[in-house]
Nucleic acid binder design. Sequence first.
DNA 1: AAAAAAG
Length: 633
Amino acid sequence: MKLNKRERAHPEVEKILLFCIQSKPNLKACVAFRVSPSSSSLIQFRVLLRAMRASWADLAANSAAAAENATSRPVYVPPHLRNRPPPAEAPAPASASNAGSRWGAPRNKEFRGRSSGGGSGGWDRPEVNPFGDEKEGADAEEAFNEQENTGINFDAYEDIPVETSGENVPPAVNTFAEIDLGEALNQNIRRCKYVRPTPVQRHAIPISLGGRDLMACAQTGSGKTAAFCFPIISGIMRGQPLQRPSRGVRAVYPLALVLSPTRELSIQIHEEARKFSYQTGVRVVVAYGGAPINQQVRDLERGVDILVATPGRLVDLLERSRVSLQMIRYLALDEADRMLDMGFEPQIRKIVEQMDMPPPGVRQTMLFSATFPKEIQRLASDFLSNYIFLAVGRVGSSTDLIVQRVEYVQESDKRSHLMDLLHAQRANGVQGKQALTLVFVETKKGADALEYWLCRNAFPATTIHGDRTQQERELALKSFKSGNTPILVATDVAARGLDIPHVAHVINFDLPNDIDDYVHRIGRTGRAGKKGLATAFFNDSNASLARSLADLMQEANQEIPDWLLRYASRSSFSSGRNRRSGGGRFGGRDFRREGSFSRGGSDYYSTGNNSGGYGASSGYAGGYGTGVTSAWD
DNA sequence: AAAAAAG
């Protein structure tokens, strides 16, 4: 079937595709055309109806159901007590000895398919199983997705050094069984096929369960999302019943807020968190820009415990008084260094400091990232109270799994060079599918142009960047993940956090200006303990990155071309902001441990974040030379 | 100088 229409996103095309979905249940894909943004020619592409069918059916069901019951919940009921018959007397307190477990995890029977008639809580419909246990007809695509997808390669995470600082750091655990997360959550952990906690989870979860604030640096792809989700979900389940404020009738009162820098990352965190909270009664809602706000408001009104959001949309919701942060007990910033850099900091300050969120010390705050420059650590300490700093990683650890290559390529040769790489990559295909290749470029225009050029040269490519509609962005990501379009051209919107299985190759077609961005970009491959390849095109315009790139590669035991070392030594005098200072033997360093000589000591300690305790560390800062880089500071 | 995040 061919759709000779102009644009995929055009409403008329939407209608036609929707018609196909509804009238041809067995139709899996169709071909459509759209006009290239950079020329007037038509680009042919396949539309995966199967994927769209699922999401649209969901959408339709949601809006229909939301319309029919828009009831609001008057009283807070702790999640583990929801969906039970109305109790004759007050439920037993958590400490009561009821059959060994104080969790009272609901049994499946009374849980599934129960439409809340008289319950005080109220789920409007059965919870969708996010694990998709009941499969309806596996096809080739699912086989591709499931292949090798047996969870995380935990062996890759043994013996990774860890640095913690702060007062009274709780000891790490070695198994999930040691942690009292509750039966429902444990079951979800099993469903996720997580056998053992990753290092960051081993350390971060006890710290968070202990009620402590946390600043955590851990390699890309090492399980940070679960590290902050588990304690939040567990803590909410454990929580005492609270009366939520009733003034401001329209507002909802989430108990936890998770912020992330891009919409797709928020979507991903939401999907993860929904898996972890399945059948725990903890409700997770996501809110982000570029999508209709009304649907998100309806989702919120159906009840929210954990709100995952991007900053802009959240500010919008706060200003409309649809959301109040008054009841926030947990605040998590993913990619925290990004969230606190120049572009985002004012918005984050507004959300965290100038709305009605409880202050540090009252709420619990967790910051996670793979990179944490010291300037950002200083900013971040405003949001924290007596926090523990955690760095997980060993020299070259995450990057051990990633083979890094740098090639000298003139600007004008980049395309033909890329084509060589892609041809080589074709041979590495799995089951007739080309291995996934993620190509980073510097600009949105450049992304469109490269996508067009690749398509014209018979490479199935798509692109994701901020000038595309949200629908196009999500479709591009979906098409890439499914292997249908095995080449994705991306700006930095895709640099952080996105977990895309089977990315075999990250190509830095244009290198970023900041080495931290490079770390995050290449971290899209080599995830969950699997190997990956990263290739960078370097030329004169990247000279300012040479030093930090060479240092990073050296730390990761990578082969460094001589010409790059020459660039590095040439640029060594330019004290660019790219140079990492004071790296350590491994991992990031707590900025509080940097010798107080450099900035008049009391600066740090006056915030009340810590009361001494670092006296013994004064010799530490001097022990490590300048210019030693680390992927995790 | 660019990207991202509200519409």
